[in-house]
Design a protein around this nucleic acid. Sequence first.
DNA 1: CTAGGGTTAG
Length: 690
Amino acid sequence: MRAGAAMSADPQLLAAAVEAAIASRSPRLGRAAHARALRLLSPGIPPFICAHLVNLYSKLDLPAAAASALVSDPSPTVVSFTAFISGAAQHARPLPALSAFAAMLRLGLRPNDFTFPSAFKAAASAPTRSAAGPQIHALAIRFGYLPADAFVSCAALDMYFKTGRLGLARRLFEEMPNRNVVAWNAVMTNAVLDGRPLETVQAYFGLREAGGMPNVVSVCAFFNACAGAMLLLPGAQFHGFVVKCGFDMDVSVSNAMVDFYGKCRCAEKAKMVFDVMRVRNSVSWCSMVVAYAQNGAEEDAFAVYLGARRAGEEPTDFMVSSVLTTCAGLLGLDLGRALHAVAVRSCIEANIFVASALVDMYGKCGGVEDAQHVFFDMPRRNLVTWNAMIGGHANIGDAINALAVFSDMIASGETAPNYITLVNVITACSRGGLTKEGYELFETMKERFGIQPRTEHYACVVDLLGRAGMEERAYEIIQRMPMRPSISLWGALLGACKMHGKTELGRIAAEKLFELDPQDSGNHVLLSNMLASAGRWAEATYVRKEMKDVGIKKDPGCSWITWKNGVHVFHAKDTKHEMNSEIRALLAKLKKQMQASGYMPDTQYSLYDLEEEEKESEVFQHSEKLALAYGLIHIPPGVPIRITKNLRICVDCHRAFKFISGIVDREIIVRDNNRFHHFKQYECSCKDYW
DNA sequence: CTAGGGTTAG
């Protein structure tokens, strides 16, 4: 009697355990529910228990267990099948979902109004051009759920959008007898996803005109659209409305606002939204990190990351890949390594986004070997991974390896190259002096890879030809190109002209640059230096004077070095550093040793007509030399010295660093605003080709 | 057992 009561009560307890496990998404509660179910597994189990189990395993994303529970159901119903289909669809496994749908039809089971939405969801993420969606649509009509059922028709609408059948989707929407918010939301969110943000905004106003009220989904979609189209004003106005309606209490809405302000270049507004949030989740923190990172505030981004950790947030794959991208923008090899360790501890280092970001970070921080380790350990690589690896080789001017990875990429068939791939490969060829190979790639990229050359590629090839001394050929290409030449294109030509003393052509490039970017100091300095080294002092001085008259300030050069958790910044002629006298003494000593090895100072770009001795003294106070001396004093032997400079490294410093790397037998890695220079045993990785 | 939402990689 008692035992019987317990037995009959247990199915309900099982239902409760299943519910709790699903709600908590906890494997522990899932196992407990499973154990309870096993106690009930006897020949006479009521079928609905099997349905519960299928639901449990499907929701916990345990596909094998879900499938075996479905198969072992002695009398499967539409409910167990629907549970299976819904779980598989939600966890992005469309094919098992669709075959279960087909199987239930074969068993003569009739899909109901719960089955169809899940089946459409599965069809929406099925491989492109699959006929599953339209077939399910036909069935839904045959069984009488369309056009009347709102849930079913919204799911069908979303499916047509997601499978790229825009015309059909629009017609279905027009003919919908009962257009609810969800239908409008499907239009709004899919338009954002497909990169048509203005359509999202239009749909929002369509919803309002039809007398509908937006919900949190509509609100998020609206902010996404404003973020995508940089619609600061409409978004900011909408912000007011959202607060009035209390939608901002929803964490997703606030997250979308943080992202929106970040994308609209208002990192401070993003921070204000973030600060007043009552509840934050991992997405909130991550959005804030990205908002700072994308607005050039890497330090603030990193501080937010630390704040998230202090607040007890687990580092997610999103967070770590975002922070890594940020770090890659600073000279953060140590920081990057620390984040790599964090990724390993959180078991997310195999995530393709995280791993790609690691390859990118190591490549950008001059750690190509580390980048290769991560790269070769990855089970799968995507376009970004390949591009990052090629970029890493390009960064140190290793054209041979960049080309090797490029051909591996094509041979692997994992992914086709895109325009960035070609930018990276041609850049590598340019920096590595493989002029012919790079030029051929540029010429044949359209026919070989179907990639139309963009302005970036023209800039690469101008740089490539310019470095090789073919400025005139580069100029011809600029004149013949189908689009308007960009700033970086003329900049590449000017740089090349300066390098090879093509003063007249350089002047033409400089004039174009002054038109396009009148406030940039670098171009003026470059032109004036070029004129100075051609001995045309009067013109050089005139350019400087013009700069002064128009109020263009030269960016002061500065270099920095990190040591013991501190960043040490040096400016040219800096005497304020606490180690000043030691630094000066070391530089004087090194100068003597270098001269004994045949070093001659390169002072050709010192503009002012100083005595040679004064020029020498001037170049010996360049910020990168001060930073190097500091590094030599503090950083123990065997550890490479890493210096970052905000401008290009100067010719004399480049020459001096080669000597010093040999004399003191140290590796010196300089990251300037353009690339890396890796000095070792009297040589630089750029082979003086930069 | 049911549709619709937010964050990431050059």
